[in-house]
Nucleic acid binder design. Sequence first.
DNA 1: CTGAGATAGTATCAAGTGATATTATATTTA
DNA 2: TAAATATAATATCACTTGATACTATCTCAG
Lengths: 163, 163
Amino acid sequence: MDRIRNFGFILKNLERLYTKRFEMLAQELSLTLAQCKALFNLARNQGISQKRLAEICEIEPMTLVRILDRMEADGWVERRPDPNDRRARTLYVTSGATPILEQIDKLSAQMRAEALAGLNAEQRNQLMGLLEHVYQNLVSTKVEPLAAAARPATALPIRKKAQ
Amino acid sequence: MDRIRNFGFILKNLERLYTKRFEMLAQELSLTLAQCKALFNLARNQGISQKRLAEICEIEPMTLVRILDRMEADGWVERRPDPNDRRARTLYVTSGATPILEQIDKLSAQMRAEALAGLNAEQRNQLMGLLEHVYQNLVSTKVEPLAAAARPATALPIRKKAQ
DNA sequence: CTGAGATAGTATCAAGTGATATTATATTTA
DNA sequence: TAAATATAATATCACTTGATACTATCTCAG
């Protein structure tokens, strides 16, 4: 009946499946999806700061710190001092990371092939368009977080964090 | 250009945004999305076992144990012995949880309203259909996990788990 | 120029998740 | 029917993640 009710759930399940599958395929790269994403985005933006890369990847700066720690130790990323700001670092992909980047490319192509199998070009575009639309909707709720908050009729004890 | 390249990333970002927004709205229920999902599914399947509920929710049984621990302590869920199997427990939503369930209903309706704003009924259906399709694709890769594994040209050291 | 506040990166802490092992009980097999 | 195996729930462990606090540095008001 009202299949839309499952929107949130399917989104969550889908994401988990996708990530799991990706990391299974990426096992031999010893990279998580988060790392691949960081490396991929860095490669297209050499010399940017950690703050900026975190923004691009849409993760917390602290999360990125750890991802970079790992990849720096593995020799795929370099942190150089920023000559204009002694607080900041500029980030670079090392030449050693080139084969990794190629692997990531292949991997993501395969992931997309698997995930989008059976959908033609038009459907794929539709899907992306719809997802981008939803994404934008959610981004704007972040900007005005109070706007539409549903107040429950009965106030319940607030806990720091549940589960 | 090739916007499809972002499919994996947008999926992940979307899911995180969605979850975050949901939990912001649900703060006063002191419930996470995972708990809401469990409670919601349990309410529709009173008397089932933990194993079964974990399957329905598509989470690990161990994860469910913890979710139930919390909700049982909060008095919203009951674990009763299974008369036919002394290993198992049967699960019930308590009457006290009724208002919570109503809140969850409202909340998820609002979430969907926010997330799907600007999409007409046809587009919403399209989106769900496409997501379900992708979901099925990924589910089937799980069944035959080796089928299409992309072997990298250069073998890299395998690590237990990366960042 | 100087002090107040902002900002970049990082350490620390609290919480959640999944994998694996464990225990009690069921089921199957010989 | 006794032994071997499977299963439901759970304890424990390892690993992520995000929130918050902290340090060094920058920027801006006065």
